[in-house]
Design a protein around this nucleic acid. Structure first.
Lengths: 243, 243
DNA sequence: GGTACTTTTTGAACATGTTCAAAAAGAGTC
DNA sequence: GACTCTTTTTGAACATGTTCAAAAAGTACC
């Protein structure tokens, strides 16, 4: 781990400078030359420690995700209804992401590119992704709302995907105080509550099963209908959805 | 319109070369210098006719959208159940987009950036956006399925947003023949059919209204709760959702 | 056809992300 | 300390998107 302490210090310093710069002046104006200069090393050296600019952005994501988790913690500790927990966790993301809204578009643009290390589905993002996913496992696990057994397994992932969708919406949201995004969060959370309640009714059972089956069949790690689905395909990374 | 015929010819030639190149070698390898050289003009001249590389990508979108509309036409002409029409139109997009899958990620990345001309919500995209939206107006208008009145007004836009989501999924889809995306299309279409049917039941009425109200309240062109919502904000363009 | 004006075109220039060969610094061994 | 060998660091180089001042071509009017 601590290869050479000297090298490790250079790396850490570069990361700190980069994260601070990304936060303060955005993606575009955070040039590799500027980061390197600010850190007191050469441009090439920055590339020795980080394979690309995206790799630096990745470090930022990790910080933001930690911030989100921290803000969500009290909500998760409190127990309560699913809708309330969801509202709390989704809402916490709006607060945690707020400082980055000005450059959110740039970050999302970088993150959405399939090959990008910064993609929420990439192997490189495993760290921040797992952090974020765990929040929704906890949302479901710790709620007093009775969640039908059939739903329990897949619900957290769906809520995480919804989190991505909300973030995508937020990036485009220019309303003061992100009022629209907050309406989306509040309404969405309430809706999920209603739907979960509704899912218990016999009329809904068919549709619920359809949805769950569809989600499963569409999941990259699918149970594979024609057997040869996820075999010798090495380059593929983790999960992916539609956000 | 036909300002100077000479200038117009240069512009058209640049556009044709660019679209062909984007189709054949992708976004990155289609450099402005290469486009200009291939068209037999200087680099600066390309910038005289198109303000940015994104503007050229915009031209590609228009072509692809036309292709989609063309493939969807027979389905739309045929009438029938909502689910079938949807499956046809969404499925047509998979076929129409297929030649660009290799570079789909690059295009989406460009399109997702809020300020970008290539964004599906930008003013510059009005042309291709309207083309695409009209498809879903027609899907709903021409179906034999009985769609509850409350739904009719908003359904087309929701389906269009779903189209964006499907495209986003497709971009990440590495399964052979886009099998996963096709499962998503088939399952999604069937699901919409079921849900519309379900929406007629009294139990569902409450949730349906919640959804519709939420979508409205979250729409940029919202009826504005605190009155000062869409006032003196000139730079804002058209609609936007979460895809 | 010449003169004033606008539109179009050019090519050099700039800052960017990234690469790379070579230099410098470290680490281990005698 | 000198000698290998690896790790780290450097700075110049490359191709990119974009800008810009100036040249060329076109147009309108005398």
């Amino acid at each position: 781990m601590s290869a050479t302490p000297k090298s490790e210090r250079t790396r850490a310093h570069l990361r700190d400078v980069a994260v601070r710069m990304l936060r303060d002046v955005g993606y575009e104006r955070t040039t590799m030359r500027a980061v390197a200069a600010e850190a007191g090393v050469s441009t090439g050296n920055a590339y020795y420690h980080f394979p690309s600019k995206d790799a630096l952005v990745q470090e930022l994501y990790l910080e933001v995700q930690r911030e989100h988790a921290e803000r969500a913690a009290p909500v998760l500790a409190a127990g309560g209804a699913l809708a309330d927990r969801l509202r709390g966790v989704w809402g916490a993301s709006v607060d945690a992401f707020a400082p980055f809204h000005a450059f959110g578009g740039e970050f999302v643009s970088v993150a959405i590119r399939p090959g990008s290390d910064a993609s929420p589905f990439s192997a490189a993002s495993a760290g921040s992704r797992d952090l974020s996913r765990a929040l929704f496992d906890e949302v479901v696990a710790g709620t007093s709302t009775r969640v039908p057994e059939r739903l329990r397994a897949q619900l957290p992932e769906l809520l995480w995907l919804a989190q991505l969708g909300i973030t995508l919406y937020w990036v485009h949201d220019t309303s003061p105080g992100f009022a629209r995004t907050r309406r989306l969060v509040d309404g969405g959370a309430a809706l999920v509550g209603s739907l979960v309640r509704l899912a218990r009714l016999p009329v809904a059972r068919g549709v619920v099963d359809d949805v769950l089956r569809l989600v499963r069949s569409v999941h990259p790690a699918a149970e594979a209908s024609p057997a040869s689905d996820e075999g010798p395909r090495g380059r593929e990374t983790a999960a992916q959805g539609d956000a």
